[in-house]
Simulated scan of single mutants.
Amino acid sequence: MTSTNDRVVPPAARRRRRPTKTGVVLSGELIVETALRLLKEHGADALTVRRLGLALGADPSALYRYFRDTDDLLLAVADELIGRTLRDWRPTGDWRADLRDLGLRVHSGSLAHPQAAVLSSYRVTGRAHEIQAVETILGVLRGAGFPDAEAVRIYHAFVDQALAFAALDAASTALPPAAREAEAGVWRATYARLPADSHPNIAATARHLVHDMRRSAYPTALDMLLGAAAARLAEITGGGRAAGTGPVRDGMRPAAD
């Protein structure tokens, strides 16, 4: 999909008057939804104008009315994944529980679309859903009592941790099932059989390694990050709201779709 900046038309003028060959009316939302499906089914190679056009039953050139190029579409895909994270999320007023819930939603959303997550987790979209996510997370932290500089520092760590684990675990999920099983089997076939005289620490913990290394470490890492943030808040506030709840500021609830 090559760059065609001059072809992109304003949103109000984009709606196709006639259905495509498959009987659907083309829209930016439909193209993004189709791109997500193709990525999930066929991987990164599916993100081409020709494949999207075939899947939509539309002339491939029609896609340039909505997106400048493949990268523009990828940013829209990334923003859609963020939007799905926020769609059903509602703050409770407990900052730690709210951030944990958001983090786990980011992670599970990435695993639902691993190919898209691998391609887009490191991108900054600057689009509506991402802007709402930044506003929301900073609002949770500021509402809990973190000073602005601390709120940004923890926001940065929280988001990078979530996206890093999302990309890591999504890449593993995107492997063929046989390859995933083979990698998990290494812990049983190799590590669990190492002798205690040469590898005492691995031998002592082998059964835990076999059990734990099959799972994502993200929930543990997330709890550790939030625990460190709570300890920092206790230092700042003298213990006032480190493990408790904080006020929810106006505008914290994401707009309903």
Rank of each mutant, 00 (worst) to 15 (best):
S172I: 09
L47A: 00
L26V: 04
T245V: 09
A174C: 05
G227R: 14
S27N: 02
D72H: 11
L52P: 00
H208C: 07
L54F: 02
A170H: 05
V118N: 12
T4D: 14
A116T: 02
G143I: 04
L74E: 06
G251Y: 06
S216R: 10
P147Y: 12
A112D: 10
L141I: 14
L233H: 09
L222D: 07
K21A: 15
A178S: 09
G126T: 10
A229S: 11
T245W: 01
E183C: 04
T205L: 13
A184E: 13
G109N: 15
L119D: 06
S61R: 11
N201T: 15
R37N: 05
L226H: 12
V159K: 14
A12N: 11
L75M: 04
P176W: 05
P219Q: 10
R15A: 15
R193F: 00
G185W: 08
L163S: 03
D71P: 01
R15G: 13
R153T: 04
H42P: 00
M252R: 12
D223A: 13
P114C: 00
A78M: 02
P219Y: 07
D197H: 09
G109P: 12
V24N: 03
V25A: 13
R215Y: 12
A242N: 03
P176Y: 02
L36A: 10
R18W: 14
E150H: 09
R249Y: 03
Q132L: 11
R253H: 11
L86W: 08
A184G: 07
M252F: 08
H42M: 04
D169F: 04
E130H: 04
Y66A: 00
D148P: 01
A228R: 14
R214V: 10
G238A: 07
P177Q: 05
A166Y: 02
D72Q: 04
H208A: 09
A13N: 05
A221E: 15
L86H: 08
D250L: 10
A178L: 03
T85C: 14
A184P: 01
G126M: 04
G240D: 11
G240V: 06
A149D: 13
A151W: 11
P200K: 03
R50I: 00
S108L: 12
L73R: 00
D223F: 02
D6L: 14
T220R: 11
Y155T: 05
A167Y: 10
G93E: 14
E183L: 14
V32W: 01
L74K: 02
V210I: 11
R127Y: 07
R68N: 00
D69K: 11
I236N: 01
T2D: 14
P247L: 07
Y155G: 02
L38H: 02
E183Y: 09
Q132I: 09
R232Q: 14
S108E: 15
A206C: 03
A162I: 09
H129C: 09
F158D: 08
G109A: 10
V118G: 05
L226T: 10
R253D: 12
S3Y: 06
D79P: 12
